[in-house]
Computed example of a mutant assay.
Amino acid sequence: MPKTRLDTARIRAARRLIAPVFRDTPLYRCEALEPELGCAVSVKLETANPVRSFKARGTEVAATRLAGQGRPAVVCASAGNLGQALAWSGRRRGLDVTVVASRFATAAKLDRVRALGARLELVDGDHETARRRAAAIARSDGIRLLEDSLDLETCEGAATIGLELVDASPSFDAVLIALGGGALATGIGHVLKEMAPGVEVICVQPLGAPALTLSWRERRVVTTGTTRTIADGVAGRCPIPAVLADLLVVADDAVLVTEASIVTGMRLLLDRAGLVAEPSAALGIAAVLEDRDRFAGRHVATVVCGGNVDPAAHRRWTGGR
C-alpha cells in the first residue's frame, strides 16, 4: 500500500512499552445490540483501564521514551482524555506533566487530570486555543510538546488496537472508528490496510464537528469556524496536514452522524451492553443506525474508545435517573 508516516515494526515495538493494563482489551461479539442494528456487531472495549480511554496506549509510548531520554517535563493540549492518560503515564515515570484545556471541557475529565497529579491550565476558548497555549508553553519552558495525532507515539500507540483486531477470529467486514484528531483512525487503519486489506475502514465524525471528514472528502485541509457537538473528544476544527495525508491512504470512507444518533448509540450501549460510553465512543453505533442497509448481513467491529463522561449529562442523554 502507499506509505504513511507509521511503521508496523515500530508499532509492534511500541506495544512492548505499554503497561499490560492497557493492552489486550476485551473484544467480543455483542449479540444484544444486533436486533437494533441489523448486523453482527463486535465491540473493542477501551474503557476498562485506569484512565477509561484508549489514549494511554500513546502516552505510555511517549512517556517511556521521554524518561529514557532524561527529559523530565512534557505539556499537551487535551479535551480531557489525553490529559488524563499523560498524567497517569507521566506520574508512573516521574515526569512533570502540564495539561492545557478549555475551561469549558467536561468537568469530570478535568477533575481526573488534577487527581492524577498533572498541572492543569485552563484557557478561554476551545481546543484549538488550548493547542496554541500548549505550544507556547513548550517554547517558553523548553519542554516537550506532545501533540495528539501529529506525534507518532500517539498514532502508533493507538495502532496497537489494530494489531489486536487483526488477531481476532473471525475477521470483520468493516471496522468503525471515531474520527477526531486522527490518531485512532490512522493508527488502526494503517495496521488493517497492511495486514487485513479486505476489512473496510470507516471513520465516523459528528455532523457538528466535521473538519477532518470534509478534508478527507475534498483531499485538502478544510477548517471550520465552530463546533456544535456533545462529542467533545472529537471536536477539532483545524486538521493537521500530515494526519490528513495518512488518512487519505488508510480510510475507505468517512461519514458524518447526527447528535440524535450519537445519543441513541449511547443509550443502546448502556441498555443493551451495560457500557457507559462517552459520546465519541458511540460514533460507530451511530453510523450503523443511520445506514442499516449498508451493514445488513455484515460483521462490523466498533471501538468503544472512551468512558469519561459527566454522570449527570450521561443520565440526561440516556434517559437514566
Rank of each mutant, 00 (worst) to 15 (best):
A62P: 09
A62T: 10
A63H: 06
T64C: 14
L66F: 08
A67S: 12
R71V: 11
P72E: 01
A73K: 03
A73E: 04
C76A: 14
S78C: 13
S78Q: 14
G80F: 14
N81W: 11
N81R: 13
G83T: 13
L86I: 08
S89V: 02
G90T: 00
L95R: 00
V97M: 03
V99E: 06
V100M: 09
A101L: 06
A101Y: 07
A108E: 12
K109I: 09
K109T: 08
K109R: 14
L110T: 07
R114H: 09
R114V: 13
L116F: 02
A118H: 01
L120K: 02
V123L: 04
V123C: 10
D124M: 05
D124R: 12
T129Q: 13
A130Q: 06
R131N: 15
R133M: 10
A134K: 07
A135M: 04
I137M: 05
I137N: 06
A138Y: 03
R139T: 12
R139L: 10
G142L: 10
I143D: 12
L145Y: 08
L145S: 10
S149Q: 00
L150Q: 13
L150C: 09
L152C: 07
L152K: 08
E153Y: 02
T154V: 09
E156S: 01
G157Q: 01
A159L: 00
A159I: 00
L163S: 03
L163V: 08
